[in-house]
C-alpha cells in the first residue's frame, strides 16, 4: 500500500520560504494585504514556524522549520470533525472537504501543529491577478477550513496521465509544489512504504524525528535534525 510522506532536512533548509510561496501559488491562496496579514488570518498551507531546538538539534534558541500538514496517521482533526469533512484516505492523506465543512473550527483547535487554516473571508484577487489561478484547485468559499493536501490534485493528474498512457504511476511523477520548489533540496516526497524510495531512505536516517512524537499523532512528515 502506498503511504505518502515527506522528509524535511533541517540541516539543508535555509528558511527561504520558497515552499511557502510555491504552495500559495499552486493552491490558489489569496493574497492577504497588510490588514488581514496583521490579523494573523492570511492563508498559507505551509508556513515557517519555530520548533524546539532540542528537536531540531540546533544550537540554543529556536529553530525554524517549514510546517505543512503533518498528515498524521492518527490525526486529531479527523477524530473531532463532527461532519466527516476531514478524512484520512487509504494512502494516508488527510483531506478536507470544503463543501461539507460547517466551519466550527474544532479541527483547527484540535490540531497540535496549528497548520489548519480558516477562510475568514472570501479570497480576493484584484484583476488581473485572478488570471494566474490554478484550475486544478477549487477556490474555497468563506467560512470553511482548508489545509495542505500534499497537492493531491497533482497526484490525480499524474494518475490520470499514467492511466491514459496505460502504465503504472512512476514514483517521481508526483511531488507537491513545495518539494518541487525547494532550492536547498531539503524536501523529499514519496512512498514511505517503498523501501527503495528516497524518502524512505531519508526517513531511516538516525537524524530523523517527528514533531511532537510524544502526542502519538504519528505524523508522516519527518524531519531530519541539524548537526552531525
Amino acid at each position: 500500500m502506498t503511504r505518502w510522506g515527506m522528509v524535511i532536512d533541517l540541516d539543508r533548509c535555509t528558511a527561504c520560504q520558497a515552499c511557502v510561496v510555491a504552495c500559495r501559488v499552486e493552491n490558489n491562496a489569496p493574497p492577504s494585504g497588510p490588514e488581514f496579514a496583521h490579523q494573523g488570518r492570511d492563508i498559507s498551507w505551509i508556513r515557517l514556524g519555530s520548533i524546539k531546538h532540542e528537536e531540531a538539534g540546533n544550537r540554543p534558541g529556536l529553530s525554524l522549520a517549514p510546517l505543512p500538514c503533518m498528515h498524521c496517521e492518527n490525526p486529531p482533526c479527523v477524530h473531532v470533525c463532527p461532519t466527516h469533512a476531514t478524512t484520512i484516505d487509504e494512502e494516508g492523506m488527510v483531506a478536507q472537504v470544503p463543501a461539507r465543512c460547517i466551519g466550527c473550527r474544532y479541527c483547527t483547535t484540535a490540531c497540535p501543529y496549528t497548520v489548519r487554516q480558516f477562510n475568514w473571508r472570501l479570497g480576493q484577487w484584484p484583476a488581473p491577478l485572478d488570471q494566474g489561478r490554478n484550475p486544478d484547485v477549487s477556490i474555497r468559499p468563506r467560512g470553511v477550513v482548508e489545509k495542505c493536501t500534499f497537492c493531491a490534485h497533482r497526484l490525480q493528474r499524474a494518475r490520470d496521465r499514467a492511466r491514459y498512457e496505460g502504465r503504472e504511476l512512476e514514483p517521481d511523477e508526483y511531488v507537491p509544489a513545495c518539494v518541487e520548489s525547494c532550492p536547498a533540496e531539503a524536501m523529499f516526497f514519496g512512498d514511505l512504504d517503498d523501501p527503495h524510495s528516497e524518502v524512505a531512505r531519508q526517513a531511516a536516517s538516525p537524524r530523523a524525528f517527528r514533531l511532537m512524537e510524544e502526542l502519538g499523532t504519528r505524523p508522516k512528515v519527518i524531519y531530519l535534525s541539524k548537526g552531525e
Binding site: 520558497a18 510561496v21 510555491a22 488581473p128 488570471q131 520548489s181 525547494c182 533540496e185
Partner: peptide
C-alpha cells in the same frame, strides 16, 4: 528549483 521571488513572479505579471 526556484526561490520565493521566482515563485511569486506571476504576481508581477498579473
Amino acid at each position: 528549483r526556484l526561490c520565493p521571488k521566482g515563485q511569486a513572479a506571476l504576481q508581477a505579471l498579473y
